[in-house]
Amino acid sequence: MILLDFGYERAATLQQAAAWLARLGDGAHVLAGGTDLLPSLRAELVSPGVLVGLSGIEPEPPRLTADGSIRIDALTRLSSLAHAGLVREKLPMLADSALAVGSNQIREMATLGGNLCQETRCLYLNQRHDYQFAAPCFKRGGDCCHPFPRNDRQTCWSVHMSDIAPALIALGAELEILGGAGMRRIGAAELYTGSGLQPLSLGRAELVRAVIVPPPPPRSGWGFHKSTVRGGLEFGMAVIAVSLQLAEDGASCCGARIAVGAVRERPLRLESAERALVGARLDDERLARVAPDAAKALNPLPHHGFTRRHLLDNVAVYLRRALAQAAERARTGRA
């Protein structure tokens, strides 16, 4: 049961939604699929006066643009994204990352934009606390941090759990942001600030309108892994997305993008590991060295009962496997 009373307005277009949000200010919140917002409303993590619903806006199907990029409407449901022929064929990593989210029902409801803009999580933040008193934490306007009692920096060490964001970052995707001042385009990683208090770089009335993914270059391959305990209906303990490109000799690496999600307040790019791979031969020995080094440089936030050590070990193993898989796909040309 949602205890808070709010008004509801259904927008007919995204422009209208953005204009309403601008006019209504902090009292309004946008509602897309609702799978992230409704639990936040129940937990009273957000308390809007009005919800601006986007369910009346029909998303455009994913399409190929003139320059060969693939443009995906941010309101695309994750199940449509995972099963769209164009996405499956050209961007299998993106389809797999969408299929890794939540459950069948959640994928039927949740949208691509909503997944990217979801609330960060920790064991305390996203819970209702009416059954047992818990003092408000920094993010809720209080003055403590439950998972990190020695956090004295007035900040929030919660984790961004999107499964799709790391895949988009590894694919070099860009986002179209619609706001009062018009359209702007940013890299997928720039959506995130790195602060748990304010995880998104979006302005008050800005909305993600579309995701534009460049076509994967020739001789490239991908690897994706979401580490979970059960294997379904779960937030990841770490989400790893890799794309590698081979040089014309077919053995050495000429381009690498590695992103790890669910370990910090934003998805991280592993730039030192990328530098260690570019120009090198992608043999097992090299990958076995790069992956643990990259994990060591990661500094994950322990979250949801997983210790720092466990997360580092997990990333070291699955990053090596994802890199090996990406290298294999780049060599064989098989998606």
Partner: peptide
């Protein structure tokens, strides 16, 4: 990007 339909009144009842 302010369009004509922006003037539709939002009635937060």
């Amino acid at each position: 990007m302010l369009e004509a339909n922006e003037s539709t009144p939002v009635t937060a009842k």
